Simulated scan of single mutants.
Amino acid sequence: MIRTALKPAWLALLALLVVVVVAFYQLGMWQLGVSSNAASREFAAEQATRPTVPLAEAITPQSTFPDDGAGRSVLVTGTYVPELQFLVPQRLLEGEPGYWVVTPVRTVGSSPEALLPVVRGFVPAPADAGRPDPDVPVELTGTLAPGEAPGPTGLPEGQRGSIDTAELVNDWDSPIYDAFLFLVQESPTLTTSEVRAVPPPVFGETGVVWRNVGYALQWFIFAAFAVYMYVRFLRDAAQEPAPAPATDLPTLSPPVKEPRP
C-alpha cells in the first residue's frame, strides 16, 4: 500500500487531503469559538442588566464572597488610603504589559468601616501610578470581583503578585472586604489620565451555544470522513490484482502441400 501511496497521482491526492482536513479543522475550531463568544456576550448582556446597588447590599466586611457577587455593579463611598497602595505587575491591557494600580478605599456607611481594594487602572511604568488625595471623600461605581489566588513573591517594595485578600487581611491593620473593585466611575476624579481604566471582565459560567457546537462537530466529521475515504480508496487500489501476462501465441505450422496426382 505504501508503494501505491508514493505514486505521483496518490501523492497529489494526499496533498489535497491535507488541505481539506486542515480547512475543515479550522472551520470547526472557528465554530467552537463562535459558540463560546456568543455565550459570553449573552452572559455579559445579562450581567449589564443587573442594577447598581450600594456595596453593603452586595457584601459585608469580613464575610465570604457571595455566590452572585462576581460582576455585580456596586456604589462605594469613602476615602482613598494611598499609603496602602500597591502595584500588581505582569498585567496586560490591549496587549501592552504593565501594572495594575490598586488603592484601597476606606468605606463609610458600613459597620465596621473597612478597606476595599480598588483597581484604579493600568500603567506601563510604576512612576505613572500617582496617588489620590486621602482627604477628599470619593464616590465610586465599579464591578465587584473575588480575591485572586496568591501570586509570585520576591517582588520590589510596593508590589504584590496578586490581589490576594487572604494576604491583605494579615498585612492591613483594619477589617477588609473579601473582594476587590474594578473602578468604572469616580466622583470627584482623583485618578490622573496616566492611569488607564481596566475593563471589568465577564465573570461566571458562560457556557456555550450548542447550535454552533453542532456545526463544529459536523466539520470534524467531514474531516474524518475525508481521511477514511482516502485510506479506503488507497487500500482498494493497492489490492487490485496485477494484469495477467500475455500468453504465448500458438505456433502455426506451415501448410503441407499434398502431392499432385
Rank of each mutant, 00 (worst) to 15 (best):
A23L: 11
N212E: 12
A127N: 14
F86G: 05
V136N: 15
E186N: 09
P254G: 03
S253L: 09
G71P: 00
P245N: 01
P104A: 04
D248V: 03
L13K: 10
T103A: 06
I59N: 00
E148G: 06
L252I: 06
Q218A: 13
L75I: 05
P152L: 09
D171W: 06
K7V: 01
E57K: 14
S111P: 09
P146H: 11
S73K: 01
Q239R: 03
E94S: 14
P82S: 13
L234M: 15
A23Q: 08
Q159H: 13
Q85M: 08
P199L: 12
D67A: 11
F122S: 03
P137S: 15
A238R: 02
A39E: 06
T143C: 10
D178K: 04
P104I: 07
A38F: 09
E57L: 12
P241S: 00
P199T: 11
P89N: 12
M29E: 12
D135G: 14
W172M: 12
G147S: 08
L181W: 00
P66G: 07
F220A: 14
G98R: 00
R211Q: 09
I2N: 00
L17T: 08
T143Y: 07
G98S: 11
Y99F: 15
A39L: 10
P54C: 13
S193T: 09
T4Y: 00
F222Y: 14
P54F: 15
E157A: 15
W210S: 08
G142Q: 07
F43A: 02
A39N: 07
L183M: 07
Y228L: 15
V227F: 13
M29R: 10
P134T: 14
S110W: 07
A45L: 03
A23N: 06
E194G: 01
A56H: 01
F222Q: 11
R232D: 15
F65C: 05
